[in-house]
């Protein structure tokens, strides 16, 4: 069911990771994602894996829950893997099917790409699991605040993101309901060619848009009624202040990045499986 998508959702738990300053988590996530592309050796992958496992343990988010978040991106993963598998022409040919061939380099690239993608998704969803959307937007707002000087409406963008995140689960549930209601009227979403299927989506999309606009309208009114008038003159319930643990986290993160680069480059553990 659509409702089962967990990616981008907050998972309430009491862990150090949950308590960290969102700016730390945002910067660290970014660093981690970049770090995944800084090495090409097994040792590098091992370091990144160990680090990720460590973080998952610290976050207290159940592994099953994280894995479930991967489900919606399986298609994307498959496509990447297939592309890498068949499009690399270098290396020894392992399997040859018609004009398509799988080479050692292709296979290696495919596996690495898949691992990278999975880590990338887990890494970023760990951030959303442990950070409430409000904190997240506060973090983004704080990190991007220099852009205010060049007239980028940072607060507004952050508010929009936070609202979008709040309404994702509601709209997913609504989609589920509308789908069922149209199925009860005999709609068929499963058969037919691509064109027919796309056409079959109209009875879902139109009501969904109508509902989204209605909600947006209501919400705008509710926000105005509660004296919302943009970022100016606004105080914060949870202002961002770096604490000791945040600095420690920055330290650990820097250590990891240095380690991963160093290990990836200089540890001679270049045992290719193939």
């Amino acid at each position: 069911m659509i409702r089962d998508i967990t990616i981008g959702q907050y998972y309430p738990a009491k862990s150090v990771l949950h308590r960290l300053d969102p700016r730390v988590k945002l910067v660290s996530t970014l660093l981690y994602l970049v770090s995944l592309f800084l090495f090409r050796s097994i040792a590098g992958y091992l370091t990144a894996t160990l680090f990720l496992i460590g973080i998952i343990r610290v976050s207290k988010v159940p592994v099953g829950y994280i894995v479930k978040g991967l489900k919606p991106v399986v298609m994307l993963l498959m496509i990447t893997v297939v592309f890498n598998l068949f499009l690399k022409k270098e290396g020894e040919v392992l399997v040859q099917v018609w004009r398509l061939s799988v080479t050692t380099v292709g296979l290696r690239n495919a596996v690495y790409m898949a691992v990278r993608l999975i880590y990338l998704i887990i890494g970023s969803s760990l951030m959303t699991f442990t950070t409430t959307p409000n904190e997240l937007t506060d973090g983004i707002e704080a990190l991007l605040s220099p852009l205010n000087k060049i007239r980028v409406p940072v607060h507004e963008v952050a508010m929009m993101m936070s609202i979008a995140l709040r309404f994702i689960p509601i709209l997913l549930e609504e989609t589920d309901k509308i789908m069922k209601a149209q199925q009860a009227r005999g709609a068929d979403f499963e058969s037919g060619n691509i064109m027919q299927r796309a056409k079959a989506m109209i009875p879902i999309l139109v009501p969904l848009f109508v509902s989204a606009f209605r909600r947006a309208n209501d919400l705008a009114m509710a926000m105005e009624a509660r004296c919302y008038r943009g970022g100016e003159g606004r105080t914060k319930m949870k202002p961002l202040r770096y604490k000791g643990r945040d600095l420690t986290a920055y330290g650990i993160m820097s250590a990891y990045v240095i380690a991963v680069v160093a290990i990836g480059r200089y540890v001679p553990l270049k045992v290719w499986i193939f």
């Binding site: 907050y10 609202i163 509601i170 926000m223 105080t235 914060k236």
Partner: peptide, 25 residues
């Protein structure tokens, strides 16, 4: 009830109004 709650956590939503009014933390 769904279309007037702005916060994703109960307490943050309740804090939304006072934040807009500029009440100290």
């Amino acid at each position: 009830p769904d279309n007037q709650i702005i916060g994703t956590v109960v307490e943050e939503d309740v804090g939304f109004g006072p934040e807009n009014l500029g009440v100290p933390t």
